[in-house]
Design a protein around this nucleic acid. Structure first.
Lengths: 246, 246
DNA sequence: ACTGGCCCTACCATTGAATGGAAGGCGCCG
DNA sequence: CGGCGCCTTCCATTCAATGGTAGGGCCAGT
């Protein structure tokens, strides 16, 4: 044989190796990694060795393979979200302290909200959103408020393909939420993810009126000051937006 | 020609592409990227296209290339430091609130401290340590306290090759700091990085008595409660260590 | 102690995927 | 409108990548 029987390039394979780690699983056996990545063992072995030589992968104590510190370092040094996170962090900290709630920051990627930063309170209500985690647009206030501020064409495309496997949400409900979100400038969502939690999110708008990100909080349903949270979030979001101009 | 004139594999090239982004620079022109990565333009072009197809790179508005959200997501989802950061975050937040100071968390990588997490106070003293940033062991309290808790052999190797280009530190001073750090269980460092800032760091120890990380604060020299910080840090570090066992 | 199973590592003849110079667009500025 | 920088595409050449196979280390079960 020669280069790849299966017709995939090395780059494809490298990507498959990176993607082979299931969410939250830090390390895998070589054999299992090969299987998950769909590679012959000997090919996986060679590839892992090359990547390890550069620090993109590492061999940990038990002989298992994990993503390397070097990779983490490179990606986080030049992260596409770096500017956004740096601009947002001080404001997120303020919110966390003043409102005493979970705060999170998300961007829109496809039809999902991708959470890029999160500050959680000890002992506070469960916040399902994890850093680098995703949630479908229709079940997260952050996703909805981002979609609500997308160009009409994008929203139309989204609604066209919308389908909720759980059946809890209909396209009409989503349409209404988007319309309200666009008009009010925030989205409030009750207990979709967790029956005891409210999500509230506002958009971070840049100079060209594009919604770059969503700033949100997750609060327990018993929280009384719900409406008071909105202006605080909006003020913070404007601050973030202004920082991103400069 | 065939595969690489220069004798490097594709993996080498992928790594060089990732490494081509200078610290803090999010995006590059293709031509510049090719030059920095030491690749012929057409090869760079092909490689970038492949990587982009998988979302490891992205083309941004101006036609420049940057690291992709997908890469950021994969790395941060399965980060080798994920468990450490998750265990540490609540304690770091406590420290930040109670002591009202900058907090950071670092691991040892080679002869450098690599900062994996940081919480900074608005308006607080400048903290040079950036997330995913590095500092040489001998000018950071985190680096020193980590080195002070390494096996004797590692310390010997480190001291053997030690050389401070600035000449401010001598091997003897470092040796003394390491000895003190090992004995006292913390390292305090004044104004090496910034003349107005103190750094104090303690080790996070796991069940096998290995120093996995350093927990530290950066405080202004005028701060009076210096000694009071140490027990707080040590308590938090023990808490983190205990969480990592489970 | 022995055996079987599991996982990792090493070898090597084969060949098509990767290569990069050159030429063809595209947009910008003077 | 001509020159320049930057991006994209093309294509004949060839060696880096491939993966089946075999070897070695480790542990659990018998």
């Amino acid at each position: 044989m020669a280069n790849s029987d299966s017709g995939d390039s090395i780059v494809d394979r490298v990507v498959r190796v990176f993607e082979a780690f299931p969410e939250g699983v830090a390390s895998l056996q070589l054999t299992e990694l090969a299987e998950r990545a769909g590679l012959p063992l000997s090919s996986a072995h060679r590839l892992v060795r090359q990547l390890s030589a550069h620090g993109l992968l590492e061999h940990d104590a038990g002989g298992t393979v994990r993503l390397g510190m070097r990779l983490w370092e490179l990606v986080n040094r030049n992260s596409p979200t770096l500017a956004l996170r740096q601009a947002a962090m001080p404001f997120m900290e303020d919110i966390q302290q003043v409102l005493n709630q979970n705060v999170n920051l998300a961007v829109l990627d496809g039809w999902e909200a991708l959470f890029v930063e999160r500050l959680s309170r000890r002992g506070s209500i469960v916040n399902r959103a994890r850093v680098a985690g995703r949630m479908p647009v229709h079940i997260s206030s952050a996703g909805l408020v981002l979609m609500a501020h997308q160009p009409a064409q994008v929203q139309a495309e989204y609604l066209k393909q919308f389908e909720d496997p759980s059946g809890k949400m209909t396209a009409d409900v989503v349409r209404r939420l988007l319309a309200e979100g666009a008009q009010q400038g925030y989205v409030q969502l009750a207990g979709v993810v967790d029956p005891d939690a409210w999500g509230i999110a506002v958009p971070v708008i840049d100079g060209k009126r594009r919604a770059l990100a969503a700033l949100g909080v997750v609060v327990p349903v018993v929280e009384m000051r719900l409406q008071a949270l909105v202006p605080a979030l909006q003020t913070a979001a404007r601050g973030i937006g202004r920082r991103l101009e400069a």
